[in-house]
Nucleic acid binder design. Sequence first.
DNA 1: TCTAGTGTCGCCCTCTGCTGGGGTTTT
DNA 2: AAAAACCCCAGCAGAGGGCGACACTAGA
Length: 606
Amino acid sequence: MAGTEISVPPEQFTRIKALEVIPEVLLEEEEDGGCRGREPPGPGDVQAPCPYGPLQAKVPEGEQEPPLTTEESEKHILTLQTVHFSEDMQLQDISWLSPQPQEGLQEGVYSLQETEVMELHVLEGSMAMASEESKFVVSLAESAGLLKLAKDQEEGQLLAEGGLDPQVGEQLFFVEAKPGDEGRDEIVLTVSDLNVEEQEDKPASSQGHVEKATSTKKTKKTKEIKRTFHCDICVFTSSRISSFNRHMKTHTAEKPHMCHLCLKAFRTVTLLRNHVNTHTGTRPYKCGDCDMAFVTSGELVRHRRYKHTHEKPFKCSMCKYASVEASKLKRHIRSHTGERPFQCLLCSYASKDTYKLKRHMRTHSGEKPYECHVCHARFTQSGTMKIHILQKHSENVPKYQCPHCATIIARKSDLRVHLRNLHTYKATEMKCRCCSAVFHERYALIQHQKTHKNEKRFKCEYCSYACMQERHMTVHIRTHTGEKPFPCLSCDKCFRQEQLLNVHFKKYHDANFIPAVYECPKCGKGFSRWSNMQRHSAKCGSGPGKPAALGKARRTKRKPAVPKEAVQEDEAAAKEVPAVRLEQCPGEVVPVPYEGVVAEEVTCDG
DNA sequence: TCTAGTGTCGCCCTCTGCTGGGGTTTT
DNA sequence: AAAAACCCCAGCAGAGGGCGACACTAGA
C-alpha cells in the first residue's frame, strides 16, 4: 500500500501522526478472550498527533487488540504523515528515527528525505537492542520517539494478541520504516506478522514477552491462557490491555490538558483539575478532625497520619524510627549509612538532603534571609533568629538551672557546655593544689580548693599557732625545739631561719650594710623597725615619724646580742612568707616586713 | 472516567546540638 | 595586669515533621 502523501516544506521534520493502513476488521477481545467486531477506520482517519504512534490511535484505551485477517496480517503498511514541528515538540522526539545521525544533520535528527530503511526489530525488544545498537537505543530511551516506537511495538503485540489472525493465535510484527516511495516527507512502516509469546500466568517479572523476530510459530490460543503485557521501557506488566495502554501513556511526554491559568500542561484531566484547584483554593478533601483541607485525597490521608492517627507504616530496620512517608524513611536511612548524595560545588561539604545543601549554600553566599523585626539583625537560619528574639527581645526569658550547682545559664546548649566542663567525670585524677585530695570532676575540685582559701590547716602541737603552709609550721616548731640549723660562718651564732642568718650577716659582718633607722619625730630616737618606732612614739606623745633618711647610718661594731624580741618574733612568725623584702630608701636599705614575717631587728643603739 | 491509595520530590519549618569568638568575671 | 574561667551569642549542621504538588496504579 502506498502511504498518504502530504506535501510539507522540506525543512520540517516528521512525526508519527496516524495509522494510514490498518486491518480491515478490528476485533476487540474481552478479558475472557472473546472478541467483538469493530469497524476499521477509514484511510483518511488521521488522528491528532499521538505519541503512541499510529497503532495506538487505533487501539483506544480499554479496548482490545484488533485482530487482522490472515492476509492483512502478513504485512501492514503504516504511513506516517509529516506534521509541523510545534514548540513543545522536541527535536529528540523524532530522533529515534535515525539509528545513526546523518552527516550534516543536526542533533542526530534527520528529515524524511534522509531517512533510510530502518528495520525495527520489535521482537528483539528495545532493551535487548541496547547493547548492540546503543546509539539507537539511547536515542530511543531519551526521546519520546522511543516511547512511540515502544508503543508501536506494544501495539504490534496487541494487534497480534488480539488476533490478527484468530486462527493462528498471537502474531508478531516486523516493522520496517523507510521513506515513502512516492513522497519524500513520509515514513512507511512495514509491519509484518510476528508472534507474541503466550504466557500462562507467568509472574509479572517474566521477561521476553515476544519471541524472536523470525519466529513463525503460531500457537493456538486457548481461554485458559492468560497473557501478560510487558512494557519494554520499564518493568511494568499487566494482564489487562486497558491498564497496559494506560501505562504506556506514562512513557510519553504528551500532556494535552493545559491549565488556562498558568498554561501548565497535564497528562490527564484529573491532574489538571487538581492543579486548577491549587489556583482556586478549592480543597475538596476536608479533615474530619481539624480544619485542614486538601486538594487530593492522598494529602488528606497523609495529614491524618501525621496529625491524628499517627500511623507510621515505614519502619526502619536498624532502629525504632518509623515514618509516615517512604521518602522520610529513605532520608532517615542515610543517617545510618552516612550517604551524602548532595555535594556542595564550592567546598567539601555534602548533605544528606537537598534542603541542608541549600541551607549550607548560604554560608558561601552570605545570604541572611531572616531579619529580627525588633533590631533588624539578620540571620542565616530561622532558628537562630528565633533564639535571638527570645533572648534579646523577650520577657520571661527562660533560664536553665544547672542540676549540679547553682549556676543559671541562658541557653540550654551553653548549660550543656557547662555540664561538660565542670560536671563531667574525668578518668584522670585532678589533684588539689593545697592538699592531697584528688577529684574526677572539675566542679568538685574547684569547690574543694575554695575551702583552702585563708585556711590555716597547719596547727602547732605545742601552742595555738596555726598557719596555711607546712614550711611555715616547720620554722615555727623550731621555736619550741630550739633547733637552729643556720649557723653564721663568721661567728658562732645560729639561726632558725635562713633569712635571719642573712640579716644577721649583713648587720654584723657586711661592711657595706647600712641599716634603716626610723627616727621618732618627737625625741629623735632611732629604731630599726617602723612598728617599734610607732610604739615608742605613742608613749613619747609624738605623731608617727617617717623613715629616717639620716644619711649614712652609724656603723656599729658592737658585738651583736641576740635580741630578746627576736625570739618573740620567731614565735610570732605566724605570717605566711618568711622572706624579707628589701626596700631601697634614699641612701639606705630598709628591711620591710612582708606579710608579717619579721627580720632581725636592727637597732641603732642596742 | 473517576477516585482512592500510594509514591516521589521539593520546600519549609522546628528542634537540637556543637563550635568558636567575644565579653565579663574571677583568680 | 595578665591569665584563666565562664557565659553570651551567632553560625552552622543533623534530624525529623509537615505539607504542596504532581504522578501513577488499580479498582469501580
